[in-house]
Design a protein around this nucleic acid. Structure first.
Length: 262
DNA sequence: ATGGTTGCTTAGCAA
Protein backbone atom coordinates (compact mmCIF):
# COMPACT_ATOMS: atom_id res chain seq x y z
CA UNK A 1 0.00 0.00 0.00
CA UNK A 2 1.46 3.31 -1.05
CA UNK A 3 1.63 5.95 1.63
CA UNK A 4 2.87 9.49 1.53
CA UNK A 5 4.34 10.84 4.77
CA UNK A 6 4.69 14.61 4.82
CA UNK A 7 6.43 16.57 7.58
CA UNK A 8 6.62 20.26 8.46
CA UNK A 9 9.44 21.28 10.77
CA UNK A 10 11.02 24.62 11.65
CA UNK A 11 14.60 23.50 12.27
CA UNK A 12 15.92 26.83 13.59
CA UNK A 13 19.19 26.36 11.65
CA UNK A 14 19.75 23.15 9.68
CA UNK A 15 23.46 23.24 10.49
CA UNK A 16 22.92 23.53 14.24
CA UNK A 17 20.29 20.77 13.98
CA UNK A 18 21.98 18.42 11.53
CA UNK A 19 22.65 15.52 13.93
CA UNK A 20 19.12 15.56 15.27
CA UNK A 21 17.68 15.95 11.76
CA UNK A 22 19.60 12.97 10.38
CA UNK A 23 18.58 10.79 13.31
CA UNK A 24 14.96 11.88 12.95
CA UNK A 25 14.88 11.20 9.20
CA UNK A 26 16.44 7.80 9.74
CA UNK A 27 13.92 6.90 12.44
CA UNK A 28 10.81 8.32 10.74
CA UNK A 29 11.49 7.93 7.00
CA UNK A 30 9.21 10.69 5.67
CA UNK A 31 8.71 11.02 1.92
CA UNK A 32 9.17 14.77 2.16
CA UNK A 33 10.14 17.08 5.02
CA UNK A 34 9.26 20.74 4.55
CA UNK A 35 11.92 22.63 6.49
CA UNK A 36 11.83 26.23 7.66
CA UNK A 37 14.48 28.52 9.13
CA UNK A 38 17.37 26.65 7.56
CA UNK A 39 19.44 29.83 8.05
CA UNK A 40 22.03 28.99 5.43
CA UNK A 41 22.99 30.11 1.93
CA UNK A 42 22.44 27.47 -0.75
CA UNK A 43 26.20 26.98 -1.28
CA UNK A 44 26.64 25.82 2.33
CA UNK A 45 23.50 23.66 2.56
CA UNK A 46 24.46 20.21 4.01
CA UNK A 47 23.50 18.09 0.99
CA UNK A 48 26.19 15.48 1.67
CA UNK A 49 25.04 14.87 5.23
CA UNK A 50 21.47 14.33 4.03
CA UNK A 51 22.67 11.98 1.29
CA UNK A 52 24.29 9.81 3.97
CA UNK A 53 20.80 8.87 5.20
CA UNK A 54 19.28 8.63 1.72
CA UNK A 55 17.83 12.13 1.30
CA UNK A 56 18.25 15.02 -1.10
CA UNK A 57 16.92 18.58 -0.98
CA UNK A 58 15.54 21.41 -3.04
CA UNK A 59 16.63 24.60 -1.31
CA UNK A 60 15.83 28.29 -1.15
CA UNK A 61 18.10 29.90 1.41
CA UNK A 62 19.79 33.12 2.42
CA UNK A 63 22.43 34.25 4.88
CA UNK A 64 21.60 34.24 8.61
CA UNK A 65 17.80 34.39 8.46
CA UNK A 66 14.83 32.50 7.06
CA UNK A 67 15.47 29.81 4.42
CA UNK A 68 13.24 26.90 3.37
CA UNK A 69 13.88 23.46 1.92
CA UNK A 70 12.09 20.35 0.63
CA UNK A 71 13.98 17.31 1.88
CA UNK A 72 12.96 14.07 0.17
CA UNK A 73 14.09 10.62 -0.88
CA UNK A 74 12.74 10.92 -4.40
CA UNK A 75 13.51 13.83 -6.67
CA UNK A 76 11.23 16.87 -6.40
CA UNK A 77 10.31 18.35 -9.80
CA UNK A 78 8.88 21.66 -11.00
CA UNK A 79 10.53 23.60 -8.16
CA UNK A 80 9.47 27.20 -7.55
CA UNK A 81 11.22 29.70 -5.23
CA UNK A 82 9.20 32.61 -3.90
CA UNK A 83 5.90 33.93 -5.20
CA UNK A 84 7.19 35.26 -8.51
CA UNK A 85 4.80 38.16 -8.15
CA UNK A 86 7.18 40.95 -9.08
CA UNK A 87 7.58 42.17 -5.52
CA UNK A 88 11.21 42.91 -4.65
CA UNK A 89 11.51 40.68 -1.58
CA UNK A 90 14.92 39.32 -0.50
CA UNK A 91 13.48 37.07 2.24
CA UNK A 92 13.63 33.35 1.38
CA UNK A 93 10.36 32.04 2.80
CA UNK A 94 8.52 30.02 0.15
CA UNK A 95 9.44 26.95 -1.87
CA UNK A 96 7.33 24.44 -3.78
CA UNK A 97 7.70 21.36 -5.92
CA UNK A 98 5.97 18.20 -7.11
CA UNK A 99 6.32 14.75 -5.59
CA UNK A 100 4.25 11.83 -6.91
CA UNK A 101 1.74 14.21 -8.45
CA UNK A 102 1.28 16.25 -5.26
CA UNK A 103 2.27 19.91 -5.09
CA UNK A 104 4.16 20.37 -1.82
CA UNK A 105 5.08 23.76 -0.34
CA UNK A 106 7.30 24.84 2.54
CA UNK A 107 6.27 28.24 3.89
CA UNK A 108 7.97 30.26 6.59
CA UNK A 109 5.47 32.96 7.44
CA UNK A 110 6.97 36.16 8.92
CA UNK A 111 6.75 36.34 12.71
CA UNK A 112 5.55 39.93 12.72
CA UNK A 113 7.34 40.91 15.94
CA UNK A 114 4.54 43.08 17.41
CA UNK A 115 1.28 44.61 16.25
CA UNK A 116 2.94 48.04 16.05
CA UNK A 117 5.88 46.81 13.98
CA UNK A 118 6.42 47.30 10.25
CA UNK A 119 7.13 43.56 10.30
CA UNK A 120 3.49 43.00 11.23
CA UNK A 121 2.37 44.81 8.07
CA UNK A 122 4.87 42.75 6.07
CA UNK A 123 3.40 39.59 7.61
CA UNK A 124 -0.16 40.52 6.61
CA UNK A 125 0.98 41.46 3.10
CA UNK A 126 3.00 38.26 2.82
CA UNK A 127 -0.03 36.15 3.69
CA UNK A 128 -2.11 38.06 1.11
CA UNK A 129 0.61 37.41 -1.48
CA UNK A 130 0.51 33.69 -0.68
CA UNK A 131 -3.24 33.63 -1.30
CA UNK A 132 -2.69 35.49 -4.58
CA UNK A 133 -0.01 32.96 -5.52
CA UNK A 134 -2.53 30.14 -5.11
CA UNK A 135 -5.14 31.99 -7.16
CA UNK A 136 -2.67 32.52 -9.98
CA UNK A 137 -0.60 29.34 -9.95
CA UNK A 138 -2.66 26.44 -8.58
CA UNK A 139 -5.90 24.94 -9.80
CA UNK A 140 -8.53 24.01 -7.25
CA UNK A 141 -8.95 20.25 -7.54
CA UNK A 142 -5.25 19.44 -7.69
CA UNK A 143 -3.67 17.76 -4.67
CA UNK A 144 -1.72 20.35 -2.69
CA UNK A 145 0.07 20.05 0.66
CA UNK A 146 0.77 23.51 2.04
CA UNK A 147 3.12 23.08 4.99
CA UNK A 148 4.88 25.50 7.21
CA UNK A 149 5.54 27.59 10.24
CA UNK A 150 2.52 29.88 10.00
CA UNK A 151 3.33 32.00 13.03
CA UNK A 152 -0.42 32.16 13.64
CA UNK A 153 -2.41 30.18 16.22
CA UNK A 154 -5.73 29.52 14.43
CA UNK A 155 -7.92 29.48 17.54
CA UNK A 156 -7.82 29.55 21.30
CA UNK A 157 -7.34 25.79 21.60
CA UNK A 158 -3.93 26.41 20.04
CA UNK A 159 -2.73 28.74 22.81
CA UNK A 160 -1.51 27.74 26.27
CA UNK A 161 -3.09 30.76 27.94
CA UNK A 162 -5.60 32.49 25.64
CA UNK A 163 -6.27 35.28 28.12
CA UNK A 164 -2.61 36.33 28.10
CA UNK A 165 -2.18 36.02 24.33
CA UNK A 166 -5.60 37.28 23.20
CA UNK A 167 -5.27 39.84 20.41
CA UNK A 168 -1.48 39.84 20.59
CA UNK A 169 1.11 38.83 18.02
CA UNK A 170 0.58 35.32 16.57
CA UNK A 171 -3.05 35.45 17.73
CA UNK A 172 -4.48 38.74 16.46
CA UNK A 173 -7.70 38.97 14.46
CA UNK A 174 -5.97 40.27 11.33
CA UNK A 175 -3.42 37.45 11.28
CA UNK A 176 -6.12 34.87 11.84
CA UNK A 177 -8.26 36.40 9.08
CA UNK A 178 -5.31 36.42 6.67
CA UNK A 179 -4.62 32.75 7.43
CA UNK A 180 -8.32 31.89 7.10
CA UNK A 181 -8.36 33.56 3.70
CA UNK A 182 -5.64 31.15 2.59
CA UNK A 183 -7.42 28.15 4.13
CA UNK A 184 -10.63 29.23 2.40
CA UNK A 185 -8.92 28.71 -0.95
CA UNK A 186 -9.69 25.05 -0.32
CA UNK A 187 -7.61 23.66 2.53
CA UNK A 188 -8.12 21.55 5.63
CA UNK A 189 -5.81 21.60 8.65
CA UNK A 190 -4.92 17.90 8.67
CA UNK A 191 -4.00 17.83 12.35
CA UNK A 192 -7.50 18.95 13.32
CA UNK A 193 -9.04 16.11 11.28
CA UNK A 194 -7.69 13.73 13.88
CA UNK A 195 -7.51 15.74 17.10
CA UNK A 196 -9.94 18.37 18.44
CA UNK A 197 -8.22 18.67 21.81
CA UNK A 198 -6.91 21.96 23.16
CA UNK A 199 -3.33 22.25 24.36
CA UNK A 200 -1.60 20.46 21.47
CA UNK A 201 1.37 22.66 20.61
CA UNK A 202 4.16 22.67 18.02
CA UNK A 203 6.32 25.51 19.36
CA UNK A 204 7.55 26.44 22.84
CA UNK A 205 9.67 29.49 23.60
CA UNK A 206 13.24 28.69 24.66
CA UNK A 207 12.82 31.36 27.32
CA UNK A 208 10.94 31.21 30.61
CA UNK A 209 10.95 27.41 30.74
CA UNK A 210 8.38 27.38 27.96
CA UNK A 211 8.62 23.66 27.24
CA UNK A 212 8.81 22.32 30.81
CA UNK A 213 5.74 24.41 31.65
CA UNK A 214 4.08 23.44 28.34
CA UNK A 215 3.58 27.11 27.49
CA UNK A 216 3.33 26.62 23.75
CA UNK A 217 1.38 27.45 20.63
CA UNK A 218 0.26 25.36 17.68
CA UNK A 219 1.61 27.46 14.82
CA UNK A 220 3.00 24.75 12.52
CA UNK A 221 0.33 23.25 10.26
CA UNK A 222 -0.01 20.95 7.26
CA UNK A 223 -2.90 22.00 5.04
CA UNK A 224 -4.30 19.71 2.35
CA UNK A 225 -6.72 20.25 -0.52
CA UNK A 226 -9.74 17.98 -0.87
CA UNK A 227 -8.11 15.18 -2.87
CA UNK A 228 -5.34 14.86 -0.35
CA UNK A 229 -7.51 15.53 2.70
CA UNK A 230 -9.73 12.59 1.81
CA UNK A 231 -6.67 10.33 2.13
CA UNK A 232 -5.22 11.70 5.37
CA UNK A 233 -5.18 8.74 7.76
CA UNK A 234 -3.01 10.21 10.50
CA UNK A 235 -1.55 13.45 11.80
CA UNK A 236 0.48 14.13 14.89
CA UNK A 237 3.05 16.38 16.48
CA UNK A 238 6.30 14.73 17.57
CA UNK A 239 6.50 16.47 20.92
CA UNK A 240 9.32 14.19 22.08
CA UNK A 241 11.65 15.80 19.53
CA UNK A 242 11.39 19.09 21.49
CA UNK A 243 12.94 17.39 24.53
CA UNK A 244 16.53 17.59 25.65
CA UNK A 245 19.60 19.57 24.76
CA UNK A 246 20.00 20.72 21.18
CA UNK A 247 16.31 20.66 20.25
CA UNK A 248 14.72 23.16 17.89
CA UNK A 249 12.08 25.32 19.55
CA UNK A 250 9.59 23.71 17.11
CA UNK A 251 8.50 20.07 16.99
CA UNK A 252 7.93 18.23 13.70
CA UNK A 253 4.33 17.93 12.48
CA UNK A 254 3.62 14.70 10.58
CA UNK A 255 0.69 13.81 8.30
CA UNK A 256 0.26 10.49 6.52
CA UNK A 257 -1.79 10.00 3.36
CA UNK A 258 -3.01 6.62 2.18
CA UNK A 259 -2.99 4.96 -1.26
CA UNK A 260 -1.60 7.88 -3.20
CA UNK A 261 -1.08 6.91 -6.81
CA UNK A 262 -1.85 10.04 -8.74
C1' DA B 1 5.96 43.81 34.66
C1' DT B 2 10.18 42.14 33.22
C1' DG B 3 13.36 38.90 31.49
C1' DG B 4 14.28 34.71 30.16
C1' DT B 5 17.27 31.29 25.65
C1' DT B 6 19.09 30.05 21.29
C1' DG B 7 21.45 30.91 16.71
C1' DC B 8 24.21 33.61 13.68
C1' DT B 9 27.96 36.36 13.94
C1' DT B 10 30.92 38.28 16.81
C1' DA B 11 27.24 43.13 19.56
C1' DG B 12 23.25 43.05 18.19
C1' DC B 13 19.24 41.29 15.92
C1' DA B 14 15.57 37.95 15.37
C1' DA B 15 12.60 34.78 17.28
Amino acid sequence: MAELKIVSWNLNSIRARIDRLLAWLDANQPDVLCAQETKVVDELFPHEALASVGYRAAVHGQKTYNGVALISREEITDVVCGFGDGVDDPQARFLGGTLRGVRVFSAYVPNGSSLESEKYQYKLEWLARLRAYLNTNEKAGTPVALCGDWNVAPDDRDIHDPRVWEGGILCSDKERAALKHIVDWGFTDTFRMHCEEAGKFSWWDYRMLGFPKNKGLRIDHIYATEKLRARCIESNIDRDERKGKGASDHAPVVSVFDCLEI
